[in-house]
Design a protein around this nucleic acid. Sequence first.
DNA 1: TCTTGACCCTCCCATGATTGGAAGGTTTAC
DNA 2: GTAAACCTTCCAATCATGGGAGGGTCAAGA
Lengths: 148, 148
Amino acid sequence: MNIGQAASASGVSAKMIRYYESIGLIPKTVRTESGYRVYSHHDVHTLRFIRRARDLGFSVEQIADLVSLWRDRERASKDVKAIALDHVHVLERKIRELQEMALTLKHLADHCHGDSRPHCPILEELASEDPLPVHVKTDAKFGALGKA
Amino acid sequence: MNIGQAASASGVSAKMIRYYESIGLIPKTVRTESGYRVYSHHDVHTLRFIRRARDLGFSVEQIADLVSLWRDRERASKDVKAIALDHVHVLERKIRELQEMALTLKHLADHCHGDSRPHCPILEELASEDPLPVHVKTDAKFGALGKA
DNA sequence: TCTTGACCCTCCCATGATTGGAAGGTTTAC
DNA sequence: GTAAACCTTCCAATCATGGGAGGGTCAAGA
């Protein structure tokens, strides 16, 4: 199977498959004489595993750990669970941060007439010297939240 | 005021101040003879405005719009409100995505004994050929959610 | 057999916001 | 006068992903 077929069978783009190979998340494949990468159904299975883990928001680093646990028949399930729960906590923290932002903003927007006049509590609040009301005390690292 | 003082007064790092200048979010400042940037209290006020908007998760592009509306005494408040509400919707979508991920993961973790034995429903689910249960149907773009 | 289009290859670049560092000049306080 | 604490510019890295250029390969049809 060529990379394109492996890509559509796994849901991981050809670009990403090459990238995963380059960073060592997946091993280097066999190549044809002319240099084309060749994939087996087993490889596709692994790629699908990776894609599912990505869909759950795991980082590539965590996925590497999960894949190696997956391959390890002697693994302890607590090791897997620890990674999963750790990630749950990260997700929950992000969720809380976003909720605080959304709540604060909604509150501000509620108080803005939203008409053609210039008066606007949203801008006033942003321009204020006082601490932002309730909710907001952001971990600024979170920044603009990935790309839209 | 030097850039370091402006940074600590505004909460925006010197690095970021230079960056904001380089991308045109803030205008180029006056310089001393020796090339040091000089900031006024007014500049610091603007930087603080920017920082607050960042804390609420606005992108630099949106902040540019907000700053120009802020400066515009003839602005219509509906323009500001539109940006804010648009952002609220983006936030809410992200929140929903993360909640789906967290819920799915928690569900899987709940069914994992987390002991020293290898059996693990989390890995089984990731390795499964079937669609992920409930919750998950991710906008993969969201990926690893910024940096930990 | 030749051509064409659909593949594949490897590089490099860009994203967004931010931090880090190197190499070098300036200011300040002792 | 010197050392520390600033400042300057430029370059690189982060993380996962996509885009594209420039070039080779393969399969199907004329």
